[in-house]
């Protein structure tokens, strides 16, 4: 087994301090978080964390259990990259005069699917969403043309084989949840969406 990129999706209550509670599960074990995003989810009042780490599957499974053990966490899933659809958003600030002068730049930008978000006299901001390699490539392209600023967001990911959280949440709200809510790994290992 090798270390690989895993995306952890955590459904949680919206509680102050929960971010810290989840983050220290990683830092305590000296595991670096590559990317972390928090956002609302498909369910009103339920939050969704998307965490990317590079680890062995065994470690990721244990981490998910530790995460799920937290009182305010509803569910944690982990997936490999081929089980998810994912994107990161990048923004690039470049001097406007360079772009205006060099036709090549415009062509390069459109080749990379960049869209102008803001155009000012002094600079233009482009946006690209995609996988990391793609957004990274554009940095290289733009550097010779005086890239002023670059920023990239955390990963957001959709699990290909997930039915979303609406029905699960209903289970959770019952005092005696069905087996869905308390999935047992040994039985569910055939499921395509890894979950615990």
């Amino acid at each position: 087994m090798q270390k690989q990129e895993f995306t952890i999706t955590v459904y949680t209550e919206n509680q102050v301090g929960l971010l810290n509670r989840i983050a220290i599960i990683f830092s305590r074990r000296k595991i670096n978080i590559e990317s972390l995003n928090t956002s609302p989810s498909e369910v009103d009042s339920v939050h969704r964390f998307t965490i990317v780490i590079n680890e062995y599957e065994e470690v990721v499974r244990k981490l998910c259990r530790q995460i799920e053990k937290q009182v305010d966490v509803l569910k944690a899933y982990y997936n490999t990259n081929d089980e998810i659809v994912w994107q990161e958003l990048a923004m690039y600030k470049v001097p406007t005069d360079v772009i205006a002068e060099e036709v090549k730049v415009e062509r390069l930008l459109s080749q990379h699917g960049a869209k102008a978000v803001v155009i000012r006299k002094d600079y233009t901001v482009f946006e690209v969403s995609g996988h990391r390699e793609e957004t990274d490539k554009l940095i290289e392209v733009l550097e010779p043309f005086g890239l002023i600023e670059f920023v990239r967001s955390a990963r957001v990911a959709i699990i290909k084989n997930s039915d979303g959280f609406h029905s699960k949440l209903k289970e959770f709200e019952y005092k005696e949840p069905g087996e869905h809510a308390v999935e047992n790994e040994f039985l569910d290992k055939n499921q395509e969406v890894f979950s615990m």
Partner: peptide, 17 residues
């Protein structure tokens, strides 16, 4: 308090195991 939706004190027992 007898129930918190995000907190499951006891996993459900599965007879198979």
């Amino acid at each position: 308090c007898t129930h918190i939706r995000s907190y499951r004190p006891k996993p459900i027992v599965r007879k198979e195991y």
